[in-house]
Design a protein around this nucleic acid. Structure first.
Lengths: 192, 192
DNA sequence: CTTGTCTATGAAACGAGTTGCATAGAGGAT
DNA sequence: ATCCTCTATGCAACTCGTTTCATAGACAAG
């Protein structure tokens, strides 16, 4: 029920087309809210109908026409209302936690391999976040004075970085636990 | 697509009825995978049809009859297959991150209040996790030797604890940032 | 010259998740 | 007596998210 609001924020940060929004949802905003182009186009249409956003069609040469969206007054108001609502607890859905508990009833070896892959993916994501932070917020090219918008983007990014670091530390714990169990089982039923 | 698997794990840990599962999804398993009783009953029916779980109806006195489920061989196999699949990256959906970035375009005061409430909710959850850890895994009443199942439950709980601690630290950062912005705006446009 | 990628939008169908409602007896509270 | 909560299951309607397919021109690689 909040994709609308994520789109409003993204359009306030920078107006653009549905296509452009879809690419942003693969990057910055997308680290905290995923959406496919299908969802985005559908919701944009509804938001336009509700008067939350304004459109104007832009003819381009060599490329298809695009619809340029920007936030209307009603959209600003809707966002403001939403910001005043209580923050709902995230609805969690962690495959990994379920799989770890499932490993008690199966050979842990397969899961260990998957956790190692997962660990690498998170490690890469951390590297990516840190590069982005250096580039946009703390590096030599970053503006000396950050405006509110960028300050807030930065604190969200810091949250992502903290999350990745915490996850990587925990994954070490998980791997150690899985390997300990694997070793204990091997000792119980020794091979030839 | 993985509620089936969460149910399989929960039933392997302890067989029970749909109602009992629904309550577990409000507690232990529910911290990593949420589900309502509606979803659970629907999926249980499908799993029964697929031969993943066995049922036997239990008459009770003073209470409605219940259907007692346990995992069948086909269910064990399905879980094993799933554990061998790659771990998919969590699909993230953080209201709070979107709201923080939205605060650039609105008065931060309202959001500050909501973040403070949210902080308290996470603080309570951490306390709750720590009490559970003491009770079930490290306290005087905990069994001296933890079996694999409980070892793995414990490492998942440690993940939850690490997550809450990380979140609380980050929320302090968020509040400091929001307050700084609020103060800067007040200084720019001073009141009477 | 065919295949593939990028920009740009959209329809249609399906599957997952949410919300509201219904039933029904036991037991406790006011 | 009446209301509320707990146990226990389920239907129906709805919204949200995912997947597959379609169009269409520009441009680069092989």
């Amino acid at each position: 029920m909040a994709l609308e609001h994520a789109i409003l924020v993204s359009l306030l940060e920078k107006p653009g087309s549905g296509y452009e929004l879809a690419r942003r949802f693969d990057r910055s905003i997308g680290y905290f809210w995923t959406a496919t182009h299908q969802q985005i186009y559908r919701v944009l249409k509804r938001m336009e109908g509700d008067g939350w956003i304004d459109v104007h069609e832009v003819s381009q040469q060599g490329k298809p026409d695009k619809k340029h969206y920007s936030v209307a007054a009603a959209g600003q108001a809707a966002l403001s209302d939403w910001l005043h609502e209580p923050i709902e607890p995230e609805s969690v859905r962690h495959d990994l936690a379920v799989k770890i508990r499932g490993a008690a009833f199966d050979d842990p070896a397969a899961l260990i391999r998957q956790v190692e892959r997962y660990q690498q993916a998170h490690s890469e994501r951390l590297t990516h976040y840190l590069a982005g932070e250096l580039r946009d917020f703390t590096g030599p090219d970053a503006p000396a004075h950050l405006d509110d918008m960028r300050e807030l983007q930065h604190v969200v990014l810091r949250g992502g970085i903290a999350y990745e670091r915490m996850t990587l530390a925990w994954l070490e714990d998980v791997l150690a636990t899985l390997r300990r169990i694997q070793a204990a089982r091997a000792a119980e039923r020794p091979g030839p």
